Simulated assay, not measured.
Amino acid sequence: MRIVVDAMGGDFAPVEIVRGAADACRDLDTDILLVGREAQVKEELDKLSSYPLSRIEISDAEDVVTMDDSPSAILRGKRNSSIHKGLRHVKDGSGDAFFSAGNTGAVMAVAKMVLKVLEGIDRPAIGAVLPTIKGHTVLLDAGANVECKPLHYLQFAIMGSAYAHIALGIDDPKTGLLSIGEEEMKGSDVIKVVNQLLRESTGVVNFHGNVEGKDMFRGTTDVIVCDGFSGNVALKVSESAGWFVSKMIKEEITKSVPAKIGALFAKGALMRVKERADYTEYGGAPLLGVGGVCIIGHGSSNHNAVKNGIRVAKELAENNLNGLIEEKVKESFEVLEVDKGGSFLDNILGKFKKKSNQGS
């Protein structure tokens, strides 16, 4: 297994990226292909003499994509960037999966152009794993699609279920639709249509019904589907809330001697809580629906986040995530009894409208 890593992507590149990749090579028994400016990458590797450097190769890419670069400008130019070249390595088979902590919009745009989308998928989506009181849940879309049509949500549910099956080990993941209330009549006109559509799709997805923001960390469902705007806001608020709670606990502990003593006794428990809520332990989120495993890490990823992002990429590649998604999409045609020719969305939308008209 060989994981391609964007060495120039992220706030702390290439230092933390190279170190994280070397950690992954040592601890995860995988080969690494670092893509970036060769001289800079080699300089960082030379500082890590204790690592199995023989399993790490460098692919030179002179162009660097910054966080301020627009996706359209990157598609037109910077064709020799670490993102472009790294994804081409996955496309031509010289790499099994790709990880980048760089510009999210750029990774999405280039991945769609280089890897293409899977058959039956119109909109790739970012799937983020969140900790819950019961374990974990997958939230998607977490930022790839600001505006979505009702049937895009069905594709998100299919992809999210496949990802939860592999990443969380759940045989029949339960899917919820993010809304402002649990009742079917709650939410925007689009959400009401999506609710009906997902109920019609029994056998394709295990639909629970609407879930609210409060359900995200209660583990009400294994998968939560939403548009990319709502998902990204929810994700960023969650990260901020985790930071705030951690900061508040530290401040309270340092206010008095009894609090400091109590913290010593509770140190083990506090560390375990921190680990469960630490985004670096989750590594990154997959861009689901493209023709290759592509993991997008947080822009501020440190070496631990990079290592875990590579771990996620390796696990998804080994377990053939895309094969499972394609299989689920094909099953949906059969279960929903639609014509396999033409657009997936057009076919299912036509069937859904036909049923609605018959019921009126």
Score class of each variant (00 low, 15 high):
residue 240 S to C: 04
residue 124 P to G: 11
residue 205 V to G: 09
residue 61 A to Y: 06
residue 353 K to Y: 14
residue 9 G to Y: 04
residue 273 V to M: 15
residue 254 T to D: 12
residue 105 G to R: 10
residue 332 S to T: 05
residue 305 A to Y: 07
residue 143 G to M: 09
residue 151 L to G: 06
residue 24 A to G: 07
residue 171 D to R: 10
residue 76 R to D: 05
residue 291 G to W: 08
residue 171 D to K: 15
residue 111 A to R: 12
residue 66 T to L: 03
residue 107 V to Y: 09
residue 272 R to D: 15
residue 220 T to C: 05
residue 48 L to T: 07
residue 307 K to D: 05
residue 296 I to Q: 07
residue 161 S to D: 02
residue 190 V to N: 13
residue 4 V to I: 07
residue 161 S to I: 10
residue 61 A to C: 00
residue 292 G to I: 14
residue 45 L to H: 06
residue 149 K to N: 15
residue 46 D to Q: 11
residue 147 E to Q: 14
residue 126 I to P: 03
residue 88 R to T: 04
residue 83 I to Y: 03
residue 288 L to F: 08
residue 209 G to Y: 02
residue 54 S to I: 12
residue 340 K to C: 05
residue 36 G to S: 05
residue 142 A to Q: 08
residue 204 V to E: 00
residue 280 T to E: 08
residue 340 K to Q: 09
residue 259 A to K: 13
residue 221 T to H: 00
residue 151 L to R: 12
residue 343 S to M: 09
residue 202 T to I: 13
residue 334 E to V: 14
residue 299 G to A: 04
residue 184 E to D: 15
residue 110 V to D: 01
residue 304 N to Q: 11
residue 213 G to N: 13
residue 134 K to T: 14
residue 45 L to S: 09
residue 111 A to M: 13
residue 192 K to H: 15
residue 324 L to V: 11
residue 200 E to C: 08
residue 295 I to L: 10
residue 179 S to Y: 12
residue 278 D to H: 10
residue 240 S to E: 14
residue 193 V to Y: 03
residue 192 K to V: 14
residue 131 P to Q: 15
residue 3 I to R: 03
residue 309 G to W: 03
residue 275 E to R: 13
residue 84 H to M: 13
residue 26 R to Q: 07
residue 310 I to F: 07
residue 64 V to R: 04
residue 249 I to N: 09
residue 262 G to D: 13
residue 157 A to Y: 11
residue 247 K to S: 12
residue 106 A to F: 10
residue 252 E to Q: 11
residue 266 A to D: 06
residue 140 L to Y: 09
residue 133 I to V: 15
residue 58 I to Q: 01
residue 160 G to H: 01
residue 231 G to W: 06
residue 105 G to S: 13
residue 17 I to S: 00
residue 169 G to I: 12
residue 103 N to Q: 12
residue 332 S to A: 00
residue 146 V to G: 05
residue 213 G to I: 07
residue 36 G to D: 01
residue 18 V to Q: 02
residue 294 C to Y: 15
residue 342 G to K: 07
residue 9 G to E: 04
residue 150 P to K: 10
residue 307 K to Q: 00
residue 152 H to E: 00
residue 200 E to G: 01
residue 281 E to A: 11
residue 309 G to I: 04
residue 288 L to S: 13
residue 350 G to R: 06
residue 24 A to D: 02
residue 108 M to Y: 07
residue 101 A to H: 11
residue 335 V to D: 02
residue 190 V to A: 11
residue 282 Y to G: 08
residue 92 D to R: 09
